[in-house]
């Protein structure tokens, strides 16, 4: 991925800490954070909030043919995870025996390398999940 640095930099806080936001008008939480609340529109009052670091698998798939830059990690699991506050995110599942990766499996956030800009470039860190 060329010119990955601006993206790595801009997204580090939300990736490190699951930093999203919540609308104070309707109480809806968002990850990634939004500039306006889709329910309240002009009445939205969004403040930063860390998402819970635990949740459960609601759907998953195993990736055998990985995109460029991730070939050495294949095969790996990608899952839709419902966090404890109801927000749904997409994440890689690591460190978990495949028989335990099932719908409903409780998962917790771990901190990993998520992307490397080649061997000389910046390293992007962030969240992945593992089955508890």
């Amino acid at each position: 991925m060329k010119d990955a640095l601006p993206l790595i930099w801009r997204r580090s806080k939300e990736r490190y800490r699951l930093l999203g936001n919540r609308c104070q008008s309707c109480n809806q939480a968002y990850y990634p954070s939004r500039k306006i609340c889709s329910k309240c529109r002009r009445a939205s009052k969004l403040v930063p909030e860390e998402m819970p670091k635990k949740g459960k698998v609601i759907s998953f798939t195993q990736v055998f043919s990985a995109p460029e830059g991730f070939e050495n990690e294949a095969p790996y699991f990608l899952a839709l995870i419902e966090l404890d506050n109801g927000v749904i995110i997409l994440s890689q599942i690591v460190d978990s025996p495949s028989e335990r990766i099932v719908i409903g499996a409780p998962v917790k956030m771990v901190f990993r390398r998520v992307f490397e800009d080649g061997s000389q470039g910046a390293i992007a860190y962030g969240f992945k999940f593992k089955v508890e």
Partner: peptide, 15 residues
């Protein structure tokens, strides 16, 4: 693991 390094290990222990 392949996606771990001394920095990710440090973050886990620090948390």
């Amino acid at each position: 693991a392949y996606d771990e390094d001394s920095c990710t290990l440090a973050v886990e222990a620090a948390r």
